[in-house]
Design a protein around this nucleic acid. Structure first.
Lengths: 247, 247
DNA sequence: ACCTGAACACCGTTCAAGT
DNA sequence: ACCTGAACACCGTTCAAGT
């Protein structure tokens, strides 16, 4: 969509790093990871590869910039909700990321790649900061800030990464139900000796709701954090649970 | 290492899918993701691309098979420890995977890729089963098995994925300390308005121990699970915490 | 059934040359 | 300073031909 300057038409907008990254995101959204090539990119930008290389070091940097741009947009979103509990704040960050992955399915893989390649880069820092502020608001003692925030970060990224593809399907959920049904059936046909547990939860797997699962996991981590590292200032304060933290 | 049949020497071992996957793992270990090409693979196997394609559909399948093989080996390991608490069992599974990633750094990215591409494939099932058995042993009510196991799976994969690279460095830790020091310094130079929290934990980040962090996160999830879903059979049983679960 | 290896289409990247 | 575009080295994959 948007203003698409097709080939043969001379470029009207000056080339810039931002414009290049924007085009890269569009290509990724439209055709997935394999859709981003320098040939497709230069055609869309009506230029040559040398021009792109003037603004961007290589394809890895381009993918990193695309990832960071999309993550930054996802975390900067919704100034609608003013405050709410810290627990809700963390859920909002997590759901914001999950939403970004739903809009840009390539983000799941790319987030993982960026993370394992550059574990403490700018992408991580952005997410870390968003979660950390809520951890601080939670009253976690300062000495546990890094530990608690890291745990939340890891859970969110792990869960978001896996739930990406099933969420990517359109429609009201028919495709998704079919998919989960197929997996569930496959699980029931696993070797009873090797996979007794997986077979036993095949039905739960079919019926599960991604979003609910995602939030349940966050509640586990939050409960663990507030139980093992209760607020220091107010000694009598009980650990906050899902029930008390949600409106 | 191992028996390396170099080029010009005719193949002595018959070609098979297993032999191909084994060679792929060797190439990945030696030179990383970019080291696995069909040209390097066919040279090492003293054959042509057509022969490889007879046993394997394409490169994606080859990478998937390599990932699954390494994961299976990691989870099948150590029959030395007989039992221990379920908590220790989960820690063993998690540390086993972390160890595999340390031995095969490409596994971190590849695990994420496999997971986001094929969320409920055989690789996931293997890990899921290993964790799930411990969850069952934990006394979690059956209706919560899938939720609890998924949460652990996601945390472990997210954490293992990120900690891969720093763990990849050799030596007694000097390189690693230098790396963490550099990141810590970079964090302190972030914009005070945009990154107050990240700046505040820069020192904790420098001093943190990967393994300790990893286990602390598992304890959060375990505590959350046993708190929110206590064993059904024995109503009075208190939730197991790290202290009681570790010898 | 299993393997050979030349050939194909395509990719990321470079660089001398232009403005 | 910024852009052009031909050229290069390399990649995954195919397929007619062999055994």
């Amino acid at each position: 969509m948007a203003t698409r300057t097709r080939r043969s038409q001379r470029r009207t907008q000056a080339l810039s790093r931002e414009r290049i990254v924007e085009a890269a995101v569009e290509l990724l959204d439209a055709a997935g990871e394999s859709g981003l090539t320098f040939r497709a990119l230069t055609e869309r930008l009506a230029t040559g590869p040398g021009a792109v290389y003037w603004h961007v070091a290589n394809k890895d940097e381009l993918l990193g910039a695309a990832t960071e741009g999309v993550v930054a947009a996802a975390l900067a979103a919704d100034p609608t909700e003013p405050a709410g509990s810290p627990q809700d704040g963390i859920r909002a960050v997590a759901l914001g990321l999950a939403g970004a992955i739903e809009e840009h399915p390539w983000l799941a893989t790319q987030l993982a790649v960026q993370l394992s390649r550059n574990p403490w880069g700018t992408v991580t820092a952005r997410i870390f900061e968003s979660i950390g502020r809520q951890v601080r608001a939670l009253g976690v003692p300062e000495s546990s800030w890094f530990t608690a925030t890291s745990a939340l970060l890891h859970y969110i990224l792990g869960a978001a990464g896996q739930n990406a593809v099933n969420a990517g399907v359109p429609g009201p959920g028919t495709d998704r139900e079919e998919f989960l049904g197929a997996v569930s059936t496959a699980w029931k046909e696993l070797d009873p000796d090797d996979y007794p547990f997986t077979r036993a939860v095949a039905d739960q797997m079919r019926e599960h709701d991604d979003r609910e699962q995602f939030l349940a996991g966050i509640d586990f981590v939050l409960t663990g954090i507030t139980t093992l590292h209760p607020p220091a200032g107010r000694p009598g304060t009980p650990p906050a649970s899902r029930e008390t933290g949600t409106p």
